[in-house]
């Protein structure tokens, strides 16, 4: 034991990234990644509350939710889904570049991820603007005159219930967008540090953990897209 202790102290002298309270780099890396996975669990529970609310109200007010869903633009939603999937690819490539110690590639992939994230947010802003124009934003000026188009059959719906759909739409996509903004900030910071050469094949835990976060935000969208945009379109 005394031996391993001595080696731990030695490696500490060699690697400034190793914090004093860990025995070795492997322990530090394992701790960081377990911590990140647990954080992702809390995120799932956080979004889980909203998914639960969505489920309850979709069952209770089916027609209104279907009518609300039909007012969303599938084209923009699908485009954004593609953008996020590609961004997950660039994140994986960034982690791979970090593992191989390719600094320039790493920076390029990190910047690409930020650009794709901002693209997503830009499209989201366009969609939100459209909601304002159509008075589909819950609140005093909310108006919903559309009906549920059930294979050509037009079923009128209660605007109050449609408002509930848009309440959840804004709460869920808004909370998701907030996570995207945080993620973009995170990756921009990582890109700067990567440019300065902070990360080596021996130490790239922050890239890996930020990648895990990004994938989770991506997966949440993968659920939001069908739940909000697609679920009422059947032919």
């Amino acid at each position: 034991m005394a031996d391993s202790h001595a080696t731990a102290v030695e490696t500490a002298a060699h690697n400034p990234a190793l914090l004093h309270h860990f025995a070795d780099e492997q322990q530090q890396k394992d701790a960081a990644s377990l911590g990140m996975w647990l954080f992702l669990v809390t995120e799932i529970m956080f979004f889980g509350g909203m998914f639960c609310a969505y489920l309850v109200y979709r069952v209770a007010h089916f027609n209104a939710f279907a009518a609300g869903s039909q007012q969303l633009s599938i084209g923009l939603g699908a485009f954004n889904t593609a953008v996020l999937l590609v961004s997950s690819l660039t994140v994986v490539l960034a982690v791979n570049a970090a593992q191989r110690g390719k600094r320039k590639q790493l920076v390029v992939y990190l910047v690409l991820t930020v650009v794709l994230g901002l693209t997503f947010l830009g499209v989201k802003a366009v969609e939100y603007a459209e909601k304002f124009e159509k008075h589909h934003v819950p609140g005093a000026s909310f108006a919903f005159t559309e009906s549920f188009d059930d294979n050509g059959k037009h079923i009128p719906v209660n605007p109050k219930e449609a408002e509930l759909f848009f309440s959840l739409y804004f709460a869920m996509t808004g909370m998701h967008a907030l996570h995207m903004i945080i993620g973009c900030g995170l990756f921009a910071g990582l890109a700067v540090l990567a440019w300065k050469g902070h990360y080596t094949p021996g130490y790239y835990t922050p890239i890996e953990n930020a990648g895990l976060y990004w994938h989770l935000v991506d997966i949440i969208w993968i659920y939001l897209f069908p739940l909000l945009y697609l679920i009422s379109r059947h032919s």
Partner: peptide, 29 residues
């Protein structure tokens, strides 16, 4: 804890923006 966190957020946005998530008059429960 994350579940009560999102619940508090929903209460706050309901108060601030008059969303109807828990308000029975707006279809909420």
């Amino acid at each position: 804890t994350p579940v009560v966190a999102i619940t508090i957020v929903l209460v706050a946005v309901e108060r601030l923006f008059h969303l109807g998530i828990f308000d029975p008059r707006l279809g909420g429960d």
